[in-house]
Each structure stands twice: as C-alpha cells, then as structure tokens.
Design a protein around this nucleic acid. Structure first.
Lengths: 190, 190
DNA sequence: ATACTATGCAAGTGAATACTTGCACGAGGT
DNA sequence: ACCTCGTGCAAGTATTCACTTGCATAGTAT
C-alpha cells in the first residue's frame, strides 16, 4: 500500500502530531524524525495534509470500530467486560492523542466524521444490547445506560492518555473488571 | 484587574482557541474578532502567550475546582448528584474545549499543572467521601470507584463538548440523575 | 487651553513555514 | 556498460506570522 519511505514519513508525522498537534508539526521536523530529506516528503505526498489522510487509511492510525467486532453470549457481566475490552483495544491512549492532535480547522472536514463514528457505533451496539437484555435489566432508559457505559470507558482512556500515572495507577484491566461489576450491579434486576 | 480593551482581547483569544487551538489562532484574527487594531494587542500584552496566561487568572477561563465547593450530608444519592452538579458547573464543554485548544508545546509547561489539578482534586474528594461512607458501601476499592465516577462525569462532558447533539440528545441533568442512580445501586450495601 | 493617554493606521521586519527545483549519486535491473 | 529510479543536498520562493514603530487623533483630566 505504501512503500518504506512513505511509511517512515507517515509514522513520523503521526507521532509528532500526537505530541504537538497538527499545526505545530512542521515538515522539517517530520523529515528529521523520519530520517529523510524534507523534499522527499513532497515527492511522496502532495502536501502535509495528504500525509495525515494517507495515515487514516491504515488501521494503525484509524480507531475504526466495527459492529461485527462485538460478540456476546447473553450474560451481562461477561458481555460488558468483553465490550470494554474490545473498545479499549481500538480506542487506545494513542488513538485519543491522535484525534486530539488532529483537531484543527484545516483537517476538520476530513476527520470529523471518522472521529464521531467511533462513539456512535459503540453507543448503538450498547443500546441494542441493553434492549435485547431487557428481561435482566431494571429500567428502560437504554440510551442513558449506553451513554453512561460509553462515558465511563472513554473517560478512563482519555484521562489515562492525558495524565498517565499522575492521576491514577489503576490499570485498564482492573478498571474494566471493577467498573463493569458496579455497573452491572446497578442495572440488573434483583 | 484588566481594562475593557484587555478583556476584549482575552475573550476573543480564548474563543478562537476553543475553535481552532492555540497555534492556529493568529494575532490578526484576534484583533479582528476583538474589534481592535492588531498593534494594540502588543501594547496591552507582551505577546500572544501572555494573553492566555492572563486569561488563566480569570475564573471564567480557568476550570479550577476547590475542595470547599463540595459539601455533603451523608446520603449517597443526594451527595453524588450534588458532586456531579458541582463538577459540571465548573468543568463545562467550554472548559473542555479550552483545555484541548491549549494543548500545544509552547504552553504545556504553563498549563499542564492547572489542567491536571481538576481531575486530581475531584478524585481526592471522591476517595475521601467513599471512605467516610464505607458502612453504606459494598467493597473497599475507593480509588477504583472514584475513577469510575470521575470518568463517567468527565467522559460525558467531553463527549458533549466534542459532538454535541450528534451523539446523544440526553441533557446533563437527566444524565446526572440516571447515572448516579445506577452508580449508587452498584456500590451500596443491600 | 494644555498635556496626557489610549487607540487607530500604515508600513515594515525578521523568522518560520509549506512547498519547489536542479543537480548529483548510488543501487538495481537489463 | 547503460539506464532508470529513488533519494540527498543546497538553494530558493512566496506567504504568513508574531511583533515593532512613527505618526495622527480623539477623549479626558487638570
């Protein structure tokens, strides 16, 4: 899909964007970081913007979630743990940093849709799941439950991405286990 | 504290930063948006960076949370609803947008501490609260509960700030009421 | 009336930035 | 041996940016 030089450029670009954001990332920095000459960038890509757009075609730099990634067996706790795990496998601190780094007017129209799609897909799956499990669940506001579950997963990843261990030492795995337990206890019928 | 012209400059600057981020906000744009001449900016402030630093001294542009803002009476649901309300009164979508707009290497050292302080303060209050309420709560992992509660509040505000009603129509007040109810049901002793 | 202050206006400066171009050179294929 | 292709290197261009300066002017205080 891309040759070795192009991959070096894409990786250098995205790593710099994660750290400093799109507009603070210069083509000179990219060249140095990729270990190539600046003009090579423009022989391989039309411009700075096209590097990012090319990166989006790679699953490594695109948080894309598919509905088919989520499977379940009908047991609340196990299913929700699995949902969290699948979500966090794609929506990593790295992805969060990338999507923040890309928040710039020059790229907005090209990236906004893809960024919205991730929480939207996850929410849809959750609403659908809760609705199917209605016999085991107290209450019927599935939209609200889905937003709560999404928020508590996304919020954790974001906070981890922003502050790492300065905020908390808790690891993803422990967090998922504990928070899902509380959540399930909070929604299940007695 | 600041004269009228300075306030116009600060407000224009921060509003632009919310939309486009610090490095994409030019002094020319600020001048136009504030309805003043560009050179006036540099008569009032040392430079672009100093505008932001001045804004931080105003509570309107600083999400600062104080422990003393949080009171409680010892009833889980009422207290946690009140915590969420206080949190979201300061940590608004606007504040979230500002803190994302400020994520740039030029400002990192000056803003990072203040940004970390908000979740840290809230978490501390929560851990402390859960620990005081231990008789009414099942389980003892207060750090984890606090991170879950923080995540589910912060996550919601962030998602609202990013996607507004494209992701969900749920309003803050409904969300707080419902999510706290589930959370309390999930942690309280039976 | 006079002086001072705040601001506008127009012009400009030096640095940085995205992007370009012409030439050289080395590796690989034929 | 020759050609092509990918890349490096050096120089350059046009633009934009933060920031500056000198002068004019209107409002305010004394």
């Amino acid at each position: 899909m891309f040759d070795e030089t192009q991959n070096k450029i894409i990786n250098a670009t995205m790593n710099l964007i994660m750290e400093r954001g799109y507009s603070s990332t210069t083509t000179k920095d990219i060249a140095i970081s990729a270990g190539i000459n600046e003009c090579t960038i423009f022989r391989k890509f039309k411009g700075k913007k096209e590097i990012v757009l090319s990166a989006m075609e790679l699953s490594e730099w695109n948080p894309e979630l598919k509905e088919s990634d989520f499977g379940y067996i009908g047991e609340l706790e196990r299913d929700l743990i699995s949902f969290s795990e699948v979500y966090m496998k794609r929506v990593t601190p790295k992805m969060v940093k990338v999507s923040i780094g890309l928040r710039t007017p020059e790229l907005y129209s090209d990236t906004a849709n893809g960024i919205l799609e991730v929480p939207l897909t996850f929410k849809k799956i959750l609403v659908n799941y809760f609705s199917e499990m209605r016999d085991k669940i107290e209450g019927t506001d599935y939209e609200n439950m889905a937003m709560m579950f999404l928020s508590m997963n996304f919020g954790f990843v974001f906070l981890k991405a922003s502050f790492e261990s300065h905020l908390t030492e808790i690891e993803k795995e422990d967090y998922i286990e504990n928070s899902v337990k509380i959540f399930v206890r909070g929604i299940e019928k007695k």
